[in-house]
């Protein structure tokens, strides 16, 4: 069949569908999902809760059988050739652990190495290599339950890289990590992709994960792909908005700048939506600090749900028939959705 080596395709899924539950009360988690990923690509696979991200990853890694559709990962049908595929891919799930809490990571590696058929010499070499790459050598000898979440995730990453996988599937890898640990993990993924050519397929809720790790973003909702494009374009079109939250120590005048929309303003809080394409964050901060008595200030990305909502707005504006597709499970936004208000204004 299609040789993955020749066409350079790591993942190809066509018309995947998965239904859970008994006939009467079944839920369609994934419906008619078509997606493909080239070798060496870094793809973010995102969507709101219940969009079918995890279900599709589980189908692509051979954990679940789809109800319909076909898929090949590295040329293998995941649910039929699960074991052969498992030997060539790595999976990291923020919610689950490959490592045994009462053992040291190194002890778990020994077990995994035996499972993947690595000889003990090769195992030692690889563990040393990964320890260096992840800056985690000194973490490998403590019982895993004594590690911080960030440290544990680095060990988890080492565990799923042990057999030098060709594709890395990561489900919410940064969940619960502090900022530094998140940044470190993101850098590692990019580095790994650059040096080893590992294909990275990642799901996340965190807009920053997508911006910093992925080159391409696939957005799904209600089991279907609703957007597929380069992150650079998404950044230009949809991630240009930042939110500036200002804690006020006293009364403040309204900020009136081009590209800045006041989302909320009362005695203690001022929230601004800033279109960074037309005004720099620095200019906004300067103005705010100049005119207001500030007790606290922060700059954040808009939540993913809002970004996705805008994908809908954009696509339904371009193609009216998409709006009906969207109505099968549109993202529900609060009435006071700041970004939407900002964009429409």
């Amino acid at each position: 069949m299609s040789d993955d080596g020749e066409c350079g395709e790591a993942i190809r899924a066509t018309g995947l569908a998965k239904r859970f539950g008994a006939a009467g009360r079944s839920v369609e988690a994934v419906s008619d999902l078509t997606v493909s990923v080239a070798r060496g690509e870094r793809v973010a696979y995102i969507g709101p809760n219940g969009a079918g991200k995890s279900t599709s990853i589980k189908i692509l890694t051979g954990i679940l059988r789809p109800t319909a559709g076909s898929a090949r990962v590295l040329g293998l049908v995941p649910w039929r050739e699960r074991r052969r595929l498992a030997a060539r891919i790595g999976t990291l799930f923020g919610q689950r652990s490959q490592l045994w809490p009462d053992l040291t990571a190194r002890q778990s590696f020994t077990m995994l190495a035996a499972i993947y058929g690595l000889g003990s010499a090769k195992e030692r070499l690889r563990v040393a290599e990964l320890g260096e790459l992840l800056g985690a050598t000194e973490l490998f000898d403590a019982p895993v339950r004594q590690l911080s979440l960030g440290q544990r995730m680095r060990c988890e990453l080492a565990a799923c890289l042990l057999h030098d996988p060709e594709i890395l599937f990561l489900d919410e890898p940064t969940i619960g990590l502090d900022l530094l640990a998140k940044q470190r993990l993101r850098d590692l993924l990019v580095h790994l992709n650059g040096t080893c050519g590992t294909t990275v397929f990642l799901t996340s809720h965190d807009v920053a994960d997508i911006e910093h790790v992925a080159e391409r973003v696939v957005i799904i909702n209600a089991g279907r792909v609703i957007h597929d494009g380069a992150v650079a374009a998404l950044r230009r079109d949809l991630l240009a908005t930042k939110l500036v939250d200002v804690g006020l120590a006293g009364p403040a005048p309204t900020i009136d700048l081009p590209g800045v929309e006041v989302v909320e303003h009362n005695d203690t809080v001022l929230r601004l939506a800033v279109d960074t394409a037309s005004v720099s964050i620095r200019a906004v901060l300067d103005t705010v600090l100049d005119r207001c008595e500030v007790s606290d200030i922060s700059v954040v990305d808009p939540p993913l749900e809002q970004v996705i909502a805008r994908v809908y707005t954009a696509s339904s504006a371009g193609a009216p028939e998409d709006a009906s597709t969207g109505s099968s499970g549109p993202v529900e936004l609060p009435a006071t959705d700041p970004v939407r208000v900002g964009r429409q204004g």
Binding site: G62, R83, R84, A86, I89, R96, S97, I115
Partner: peptide, 14 residues
């Protein structure tokens, strides 16, 4: 069973 199914092993034996 998710963890087991991501490994190249016979799931029941593992």
């Amino acid at each position: 069973l998710d963890e087991v199914l991501t490994l190249p092993v016979s799931p029941l034996r593992h």
